[in-house]
């Protein structure tokens, strides 16, 4: 029998990928302030601490506000760009799409610093709003990527049939196209929400000191006695992220099934 070398390698690689998020819950329930083996015993104390932390509650509220606004704005902008790029052919599309997708590869620190310097010199005070501005920039390329595949799998004849039956462009969009790409839109919103929730660099540099989950976590990691609380918080966050992603994947697949396209793989 042939040894499935590649399969074993890939499973090993997956173990490497999952290592940190598998170890996280182990320490979240470990009854010791030292994040090390051997384990001391089971406790849910860290989770209790997390639920009673007032600053954390505040940070959570801020994060949800920022992530929610970012998801809506980035998905809206992403929908427009993806639709324009898949439906119409025009010369400026290439350079403009390049600029819109640039944050995917641009080092975040450079983007954040450039934006920070300009905001300050224009005189816009830093706030949660400026974080949203930055996060929309970071998230829009991901929304465009997801929605481009949603729009690409659209059958153009459906749209033409609607025109032939006397519908205008707006009612066609509302009645035919929007329902078909809706799963893609929901999927994009969930992904943008997840990215914004976890994003650190923009939140750190474009914020006014109002805590967000990611900056709160980063700050707490400097104090060893607070680390177990962060392990508990991290466990909850990873759980939430995975749930949101599973939902996004569910909607993405449903969208593909609805338009009758072949599933070609992941989000990117």
């Amino acid at each position: 029998m042939k040894i499935p070398v590649l399969r074993i390698y890939t499973i090993g690689y997956l173990l490497f990928l999952y290592c940190p998020i598998v170890i996280l819950p182990i320490f979240a329930f470990n009854n010791s302030t030292a994040v090390a083996f051997p384990l001391q015993g089971f406790t849910s104390q860290w989770f209790v601490n997390v639920f009673h932390d007032a600053v954390l509650g505040h940070a959570l509220k801020n994060s949800l506000l920022v992530a929610g606004s970012t998801a809506v704005l980035a998905t809206f902008l992403g929908t427009l760009a993806a639709r324009a790029n898949t439906r119409y052919q025009f010369k400026a599309a290439g350079p403009l799409m390049g600029l819109i997708m640039l944050p995917m590869v641009l080092p975040e620190i450079i983007m954040a610093m450039a934006l920070l310097v300009v905001l300050l010199s224009v005189g816009i005070p830093l706030s949660l709003f400026t974080i949203v501005l930055g996060h929309v920039l970071v998230c829009t390329p991901f929304a465009v990527a997801i929605l481009t595949s949603a729009f690409q799998s659209l059958d153009k004849s459906l749209e033409e049939a609607a025109y032939d039956l006397g519908e205008g462009p707006f009612s066609t969009f509302r009645l035919i196209i929007l329902p078909l790409v809706m799963p893609g839109i929901i999927s994009a919103m969930l992904i943008c929400f997840t990215i914004s929730l976890d994003e650190f660099i923009v939140a750190n540099f474009l914020g006014s000191g109002e805590p967000l989950l990611s900056t709160f976590i980063y700050g707490q990691l400097r104090f060893p006695k607070n680390v177990p609380n962060i392990m508990a918080l991290g466990t909850i966050l990873v759980g939430v992220s995975i749930t949101l992603l599973a939902l996004a994947e569910f909607f993405r697949r449903r969208g593909l099934a609805r338009t009758g396209a072949k599933d070609t793989g992941g989000f990117l």
Partner: peptide
């Protein structure tokens, strides 16, 4: 909306403007 190019540009303009104002301009300023 007229031609392909005009429709495309009109549709992409909010996203493009956003990227020009908050990405291209800050990078140019840097």
């Amino acid at each position: 909306w007229g031609s392909q190019a005009a429709s495309g540009l009109a549709l992409i303009s909010p996203t493009a403007l956003y990227a020009i104002l908050l990405l291209a301009a800050p990078l140019a300023a840097t």
